[in-house]
Design a protein around this nucleic acid. Structure first.
Lengths: 229, 229
DNA sequence: TCAAAAGTGTTCACCGTACACCCATGG
DNA sequence: CCATGGGTGTACGGTGAACACTTTTGA
């Protein structure tokens, strides 16, 4: 029988984070240059180990905070990876999380000190271990989540233009969208506040800024949010 | 820094399985009466611990085999649960899997010996630890998976009638479906083989039997499978 | 006055949904 | 011949997708 707690093998539990950001150029992820063996000098997702008195969500939050200085960030558990030799040094199980952050807000000093850098998701170097497959998995999940929850706003500044929002969804879905269709779908969701303010950087005419209306979204029944782009 | 493997806490890793079956009455899950403390005598999902030289998928397969005598079963990893006190005896992290089995094929002797029983998902007793939330999560995932992959056939015998298939999807989605619409959607997917054989149990006229055409399904590009019921 | 981005509606094809009657058979 | 479940088609409304021109204003 398996029914005894004694004599059961314990394992190392790691948490790896796929940290997404967006900077109007495209979707980015934060990678770190590994400073220790094995695979020293190679690029890696940002990770750490689970502590004894900590749940996985907390570990993911702690790790994100350590490397970016951010908390109160959208995170979601992805999958748990357990191939025997995924880490050649020691048997390690890794629970992957992905995070969506506003790239303007992170602590640039911190990531410099940690030898971390932003990479475009369309141009990611070879990563260590099974981190490539974690990344693929995270992008797939993010695409799906897009149709289910208004996650896009997590990646944008407080105030943003429609074009920014559209470019973001284009980057996530990696396909081009029609401006008119996009705007009318977003408007029909009725979760944006159109501000009086305009962004004058992008054009002579200027474009109106919007904010995500979280209260309005929360009022809606969660199930009826569907966004097919 | 977190960058050293030494002096990191190790934890117990459990695997819990939500095992679904279907018997024309409704969707069922297999539960076991716990034979040891804590919570002895209470109902629980079927689980076990991860072994040192084993990956999670293998552990889930092993556990399913142990309790049902089945292998080659559809399984999918769900989520990893890590609340500090989820198991009052010892800190345990649990990775949940769900399985879809053909209920006719399982070893009835085995489950009797293990004090396991099938319960209708609409009438499940209070489960130990966080197993209730695992079950809720599994049902939600199964519903979603339904629109993404032809998972229904995993729960049916080799040969089945259209009505059986419909009742199954009704049980999974817990809503009634229109017979004509259901059949035309299923037929438009073009992944069933209509046999010459009829099932004569259910009516005087008899109803044709079908089989899932796995080869035909595999030929199709996986992305274009969408089933909205 | 012109270049450059912002903003705005309509049409069409397809799909999901609602809905009711005839068929075949064994007793 | 009749009761029982099996099997089949159509009409409508809503939504996704394609598509082009006008407005504003700083230089």
């Amino acid at each position: 029988m398996l029914n005894s707690y004694s004599s059961v093998d314990k394992v190392l539990l790691a948490v790896d984070c796929i940290i997404f950001g967006f900077d109007n150029e495209g979707l980015k992820i934060l990678l770190i240059k590994r400073g220790f063996e094995p695979e020293m000098g190679k690029w890696s997702l940002i990770g750490g180990f689970l502590k004894k008195e900590e749940k996985l969500d907390s570990a993911a939050i702690r790790i994100l905070d350590t490397y970016t200085g951010l908390h109160n960030v959208y995170m979601e558990q992805l999958h748990t990876y357990s191939e025997i030799d995924r880490d050649p040094v020691e048997r390690t199980i890794s629970v992957a999380y992905y995070a969506l952050i506003n790239i303007e807000n992170h602590n640039q000093e911190l990531i410099k000190n940690y030898d971390a850098q932003w990479f475009s998701v369309t141009d990611v170097p070879k990563l260590i271990f099974d981190h490539d497959s974690m990344l693929r998995h995270a992008i797939r999940r993010l695409r799906y989540r897009t149709s289910t929850k208004p996650v896009g706003f997590e990646l944008l500044p407080e105030k943003f233009t429609m074009l920014q929002l559209q470019k973001l969804y284009e980057a996530i879905l990696s396909k081009e969208l029609d401006k008119r269709n996009f705007i009318s779908k977003i408007n029909s969701m009725d979760i944006l506040i159109k501000l009086e303010e305009k962004d004058m950087q992008s054009s002579r005419k200027g474009s109106f800024l919007y904010t995500f209306d979280k209260d309005k979204y929360d009022e809606k029944s969660l199930n009826d949010f569907v966004l097919n782009l």
